[in-house]
Nucleic acid binder design. Structure first.
Lengths: 203, 203
DNA sequence: ACGTCGATATATCGAAGTGATATGATGAAA
DNA sequence: TTTCATCATATCACTTCGATATATCGACGT
């Protein structure tokens, strides 16, 4: 899951570890922040597998300071640290590789992994990288799972064995799943109207 | 988190590992099932710490078959397996200890741990074991967290840098948090009206 | 009577994630 | 000028996950 998230962010542009954490919340809507204890090992892992690569510390806003040699890079690193706005501790910036892009598409579309709320939201947030057909499949798969879950929690909400608090949890879970279902149905109807528009244009 | 959940279930009655998993979903509303790979180690850990203890395989529905000796227990185990309804592989039933009860209350009320959606729901499902004051504190703490989260996701929903899918995720997250807040406000108003009733009765 | 499927049940293993902690630089405020 | 908040990487012990192995029983079809 984290792999897809990181690769997805890197599809857009290069990032360093610390930034990935905030982007995960801001762009991919991750509610419970992923800890640094998973991000840095994940980045190391992805690099080991050749899916991402460390970029030589990029030139700061002010262009053309260093252009390549090892000594030059070291100098630019020092420059980077003290130069306007971009200081802080030296960043390790990562770029996605071609193999990384392939793996990203494969992971994102993989139908064998069952989505929980978190991975599903992640996938939707990255849905522009899926084909329309794969998007619909993703949404309909989740829809089925939620319908099953809805039946479960509704039963719990009516279970007289449970005390008022437990029943309240169940009943709120039911409302929450209902809201999720409405969302998915909205997304599905958008997908369908988009494909209609497409069909009409082709006509 | 899993510790509180297991202890909470054992407060009610004895359970074996397999059963705990289903009860977690049915009684405590846990959406993403906890795997056996965490339940059995957790049970072993709790036993090591003296918070739970393994019970001699309980007598089946039909009462009074064995009453104590080692030989008797072994016999009852065999009986258990082949007797009506309760067969299957031999179960390992756990009971909560006195120290376990103390620890349960401490963990449930612990204000230092920050609740995510899962642990919060768990705590509410077990809220009957909290005092009214601790219940209100739990609810208000979560309310604050959600208000902050709401501001974040609303910003994301309006962020023109994001594509329609990512914005949709953010906007749905906002609606979801709003629903959570309504739930919490309901629970809070119930707590308050309960304490009023209580005050009036005392009068 | 036979096989085999699905549910019940415990257990273990490697890989991944968490939460805490260490380290240190920088900019802003007190 | 010290000190505080934020930025940034890293590691550690412990917990959790997902897959897999093992085994028993009831039900179902053939």
């Amino acid at each position: 899951m984290l792999d897809v998230a990181i690769l997805g962010l890197l599809m857009d542009r290069d990032h360093h570890g610390y930034e990935i954490r905030s982007q995960l919340r801001e762009r991919l809507g991750d509610s419970e922040s992923v800890s640094f204890g998973s991000i840095y090992p994940a980045l190391a892992r992805l690099e080991r597998h050749g899916l991402v690569e460390a970029v030589a510390p990029a030139a700061p806003r002010s262009p053309a300071i260093s252009t390549g040699s090892l000594a030059g890079e070291r100098a630019s690193l020092r420059t980077l640290r003290t130069s306007a706005g971009l200081g802080r501790r030296s960043r390790k910036v990562y770029r996605i590789t071609e193999r990384g892009r392939q793996e990203f598409h494969a992971l994102l579309a993989d139908p064998t992994t069952v989505d929980d709320g978190r991975t599903f939201s992640l996938r939707v947030a990255l849905a522009r990288y899926l084909t329309p057909a794969l998007r619909v499949r993703l949404l309909e798969r989740r829809r089925q799972d939620l319908l099953e879950r809805l039946a479960e929690v509704r039963q719990g909400a009516d279970n007289p064995d449970l005390d008022a608090y437990a029943r309240s949890v169940m009943s709120h879970a039911a409302h929450s799943v209902e809201l999720d279902l409405e969302w998915i149905d909205d997304l599905l109807s958008i997908e369908r109207s988009d494909s209609e528009t497409f069909a009409q244009e082709a006509k």
